[in-house]
Amino acid sequence: MELSNQKGELDRQWYLRKLNRAIKDRLPELVTHAAVMGAPKGQRIRLAVQKLEEPDFRFQPDTRSANGGHTGLGAGDNADVLWIELTTEEIMNLLLEDLKLPRLVEKSGGSLQRDEVRYDDVTVHGPLSNVDKRRSLYEAAKEGRDYLTAQDLRFRTWKEHPKPITAAVITLVRDASGSMDETKRYLSKATAWWLVEWIRQQYAASELLFFLHTTEPLQVDEDTFFNREITGGTAITSTYRTIVQLWEDSYAANDFNRYLLHFSDGDIWHGADASLANSISHILATASLLGYFEIQGLQSRSPLWTILEQHATIDGNLHPAMRMARINQRDDVLPAIRAVIGANS
């Protein structure tokens, strides 16, 4: 078959490559959709993607005539939308696979280990794709030959080495107070959902803790964390104190990387007291990250944002463990996640 006959197929691959890139670029707009968020693992989700187009000079579509007044002749609709199906894992891979937990250092909580495969051994049997050319030629050279026989062939093979995994405890705290309205709850849950899914996938061995808080903290399981609504005023001091206590009791700083991710609208009752300041500086000193997501906070600075910023600033610089991001609408969710757990910038 001539090459010219395959040109169509080659171009199809070229097109699909471009399409993949375009989908990846536009995915953040598409996937904050509730359909993705609530979906069980492995569920296929249909997304409408704009077809790749070569732009040209054309008129701005008239909004009036689009709504009505068309004669019905030659009306083509939605031909330029392409439907794709992705599973939640695939979406996750496309979006977050390049992220890493920040400030993760090797701290083995002792028990967690995994086998790592390394090619560092040689055998005389094996698949031809693994032939070690240099060694095989060396074998022949030892016999004084300049050609290879079947006995000369050496193959690379692997050994499994146990590898310690760093242990991490990730604590998610969600503000469940009365000031969190429907939208804020949705946004905070969406953000938490993405984070939990991503952690499960990338750091399967890590431990997740879930807290809801009003004026008092409440440790819950994952299901409750995403579904239960309680109500009341907001205070943060007791929550941080409880978490610090829990960490000190069960997750020693020497053995665990500690992460605290907090979702709130920042609307807390009292200003700073000494106890809160203590907790914050303790968290910053012993944890890898205090990530704060402010959900539709006040236009100016919210009380909590101000307090955190104030206590985390050393010589005019934000403490490296302190990361904050604002989320005002759906589109902000993924950029905020990237800002908090993204590259160590």
Partner: peptide, 14 residues
């Protein structure tokens, strides 16, 4: 027949 390659051709082919 024989035209230059381009990704839009790939789309139509697909």
């Amino acid at each position: 027949p024989g035209r230059y390659r381009h990704w839009t051709h790939g789309e139509r082919y697909w």
